[in-house]
Computed example of a mutant assay.
Amino acid sequence: MNGVTHSILRVLEHLQERGDEVLVIAPSTSDADVLDVVHGAFVHRLPSVPLAGYTNVRVALGGVYRVKRILADYAPDVVHLASPFVLGWRAAQAAHQLGIPTVALYQTEVPSYAARYGVPFLENWAWNRVENIHLLASRTLVPSTFALHQLRGRGILRVGMWRRGVDTARFAPEKRDDVWRASVAPGGERIIGYVGRLAVEKQVEDLAVLADIPGTRLVIVGDGPQRAALEEALPNAVFTGFLGGEELARAVASFDLFVHPGEFETFCQTIQEAMASGVPVVATGRGGPLDLVENSRTGWLYEPGDLAGLRRHVMDLTGDDAKRRAFAAAAHASVQGRTWPALCAELVRHYRSVIAEQPITGIETKRGATL
């Protein structure tokens, strides 16, 4: 589970409620319990292999022809490319060859991961791949102004904004749980929380600068390939593992402060969820957080790499109950109205727009079928 997957599930729910036919093409998984139908959408799984160093991420095998055959048989009205890079690149080419309009979502800053994973020489190649995908797409949607400027600066001009919704019923201040708080901070410490994948690009190790702030307890929610290394680097932190559903909502609402040190977030859904839960945020001043966090009102942003600034802002809010409560109230108010139904309806309007703009081709599409 990550931000991309979460948004896909919300879109599938919306399309199911509309009565659309939906096909999802995705890599296979080793999980025997995985469903073949999700929110009314049939899932066509392609053979895949685990990504080296991160086995929970799988890369689909096969070429463009295989995806083209699937699309030709299904004949969708539009192809939705969710954070495309490997399988999505094949789908972009296949749809283009078939004359099917595409909406591509730029949700992951893959090229910038290269240096974090020790292969900086691949960054230029990765940017070339990203540019090729989004230049081929009928329309690209980005979740933040940072991402919008980033792609336009690379010559990708058919770009629009599509932000992300947040479930304000699930994530709410009322979910705060004193019993849960006592289980992770039995001494009544202020709880500094992080939620997300424990992967290199999230830079969770930066939170070590918060480890010795008096009267606080660091709580890490999530799992991933870096967990063992992080548990060693942050011996006094509480690691809950992956939490979902109401467990996650209870944990987030029970934080006193939410921190996110990652520099490569195109949006950062967990920040919105924390704010909906009435929790102020300290995050890196790059990417998606720039749109979500208002300095000195809903939280603090610090310059990338300025870990002293991170510590200073955390101490400011954990040490001042009145300021923290004011920031919390402002954070909660700032995300009200950002519902998933409203955002998904906006996405459907983008589908309709690219369908209307697409010239008539030789492939006959099914009315109301989306992918």
Score class of each variant (00 low, 15 high):
residue 40 G to C: 11
residue 86 V to C: 03
residue 274 A to L: 08
residue 233 A to M: 08
residue 358 Q to I: 02
residue 210 L to V: 05
residue 310 L to T: 05
residue 149 H to C: 08
residue 322 A to Y: 01
residue 146 F to T: 12
residue 64 V to I: 15
residue 19 G to I: 03
residue 224 G to L: 10
residue 272 Q to Y: 04
residue 156 I to W: 07
residue 67 V to M: 05
residue 111 P to T: 08
residue 366 K to P: 00
residue 365 T to W: 01
residue 101 P to K: 03
residue 220 I to L: 10
residue 272 Q to S: 14
residue 140 T to H: 09
residue 134 H to S: 04
residue 31 D to N: 14
residue 359 P to Q: 02
residue 350 H to D: 08
residue 338 R to D: 12
residue 323 K to V: 11
residue 76 P to I: 13
residue 282 V to R: 03
residue 95 A to N: 12
residue 250 R to F: 04
residue 243 L to D: 10
residue 201 E to H: 13
residue 223 D to E: 15
residue 330 A to V: 10
residue 294 E to F: 01
residue 261 P to T: 07
residue 105 L to C: 09
residue 329 A to E: 15
residue 304 P to W: 08
residue 199 A to Q: 13
residue 188 G to M: 05
residue 326 A to H: 10
residue 5 T to W: 10
residue 341 P to D: 01
residue 201 E to W: 06
residue 33 D to N: 14
residue 202 K to A: 04
residue 242 F to E: 13
residue 188 G to Y: 05
residue 95 A to R: 09
residue 263 E to A: 13
residue 156 I to A: 02
residue 266 T to M: 02
residue 325 R to W: 01
residue 200 V to R: 15
residue 231 E to G: 12
residue 347 L to V: 05
residue 200 V to Y: 07
residue 267 F to T: 03
residue 4 V to Y: 00
residue 111 P to D: 09
residue 364 E to V: 15
residue 173 P to T: 07
residue 319 G to I: 07
residue 44 H to K: 14
residue 338 R to F: 03
residue 174 E to M: 05
residue 189 E to S: 09
residue 290 L to F: 00
residue 214 P to T: 04
residue 343 L to H: 12
residue 292 L to W: 10
residue 88 G to H: 12
residue 130 V to E: 11
residue 331 A to R: 07
residue 12 L to W: 03
residue 274 A to E: 05
residue 178 D to A: 14
residue 178 D to F: 11
residue 172 A to S: 15
residue 216 T to N: 02
residue 31 D to Y: 11
residue 135 L to A: 13
residue 138 S to V: 05
residue 276 A to S: 13
residue 367 R to S: 14
residue 345 A to E: 15
residue 167 D to K: 06
residue 118 G to T: 11
residue 85 F to E: 07
residue 302 Y to R: 03
residue 166 V to W: 11
residue 160 G to W: 01
residue 129 R to S: 06
residue 287 G to R: 02
residue 110 V to R: 12
residue 230 L to T: 13
residue 371 L to F: 09
residue 136 L to H: 01
residue 202 K to L: 01
residue 4 V to H: 00
residue 182 A to Y: 05
residue 248 L to P: 07
residue 347 L to R: 06
residue 270 T to L: 06
residue 115 A to G: 06
residue 315 M to R: 14
residue 184 V to P: 06
residue 248 L to Q: 08
residue 217 R to F: 08
residue 67 V to Y: 10
residue 335 V to W: 00
residue 64 V to C: 03
residue 21 E to H: 11
residue 127 W to T: 10
residue 312 R to H: 11
residue 218 L to W: 11
residue 71 L to T: 08
residue 334 S to L: 00
residue 53 G to W: 10
residue 129 R to V: 15
residue 58 R to M: 10
residue 353 S to Y: 09
residue 208 A to S: 15
residue 299 G to Y: 04
residue 188 G to P: 13
residue 271 I to F: 08
residue 337 G to Y: 00
residue 278 G to C: 04
residue 4 V to C: 05
residue 36 D to V: 10
residue 32 A to L: 12
residue 4 V to I: 15
residue 62 G to F: 11
residue 341 P to A: 00
residue 97 Q to V: 02
residue 160 G to C: 01
residue 132 N to T: 14
residue 255 F to S: 09
residue 18 R to N: 00
residue 366 K to L: 13
residue 235 P to W: 06
residue 132 N to V: 05
residue 361 T to V: 12
residue 187 G to Q: 13
residue 328 A to D: 03
residue 101 P to Q: 02
residue 42 F to L: 08
residue 352 R to D: 15
residue 65 Y to V: 14
residue 247 E to R: 14
residue 113 Y to S: 06
residue 217 R to A: 06
residue 193 G to W: 06
residue 219 V to L: 09
residue 139 R to K: 15
residue 264 F to D: 14
